[in-house]
Amino acid sequence: MEGRGHPFLPSASKRHQQSSQMKRSIPFEIFRYAAILAAIAVTLVPILWMVSMAFKPIGEWSATGAELTWWPKHPTLANFQFVFGESANDLIVALDHTALKPILSSLLSAVFGTVIAMSAGTAAAYGLSRFGSGQNLPLALIQLRLFPPMAVMIPVMIMWSFLNFNDSWWGLALIYGIVTLPFAFWLMKTFFDDMPREIEEAALVEGCSRLRVFTRITLPMMRAPLASAALFVFILNWSDYLIALLLTTREWVTIPVYMASLSSSMTGQLYGAKAALGLIAAVPPVIMGIAIQRHLVRGLTFGALKQ
């Protein structure tokens, strides 16, 4: 990528200085770095607090008014070992259940929720974009997303119980798939709308069936947008607390719900363990985010950006 000029501020790079009548001042650069560093400081305080907490032994947690420790004086991995139940090894500690199952539950429900939302959403978006089917969907799905999930949880709890979906990852996956369907649909619809149709039409003229065009030509071309939409949907599902709180009890509680129960009366809230788990929970979004960072931007702009 070549350096580009600033859209409206005076530009500093040589290429643009020629075309720009004003020169960027040194004070501006100082201001820029100062402002960015300030923003980064604010961004990092809670994150560093979490990282530091995850490696602190209990004496340094200081949640309740004792001396404040910013950085672990005696760093330890014990919080991580603890949430995975390792400390139970031939000691008298027993974690009633370790974080493994909740992590599995979060993964399964978020992944399959994403699969449901993306398959139904992509198919419907294509159907509407190309054939004008399902004219009711855009409005219906906006309403669905606008509506606080809390307000439908009573009937949902009754339905899920009737279907025997309570406290199961598949029950969660289904509701996740539904609540994130609007995002999948809207993102994919914009991509399909913006996609040039010449290739599809050429294939049709060649005698391909419409379905074949969709599965063999359109979808492979849309790999990148699909990935960015899927990541966004995944992060939404992965972040949920409220729905899992109401629809799971024990076997398939997700990470945030499990985290709420990490406390004891010997010590109060187990902040170290919570922070350790919080760090672990950040891993999937970070990995996926890095993998498709570029597409993410395009996905989130709903195609309003024509590059």
Binding site: P57, Q81, F82, S87, A88, V93, S261
Partner: peptide, 19 residues
Amino acid sequence: DLIRISRRRLLASGGKAAV
């Protein structure tokens, strides 16, 4: 560290809410 953390607080838990 492992042993310390275990003995220390994680041994037993009380209150109405722990895992």
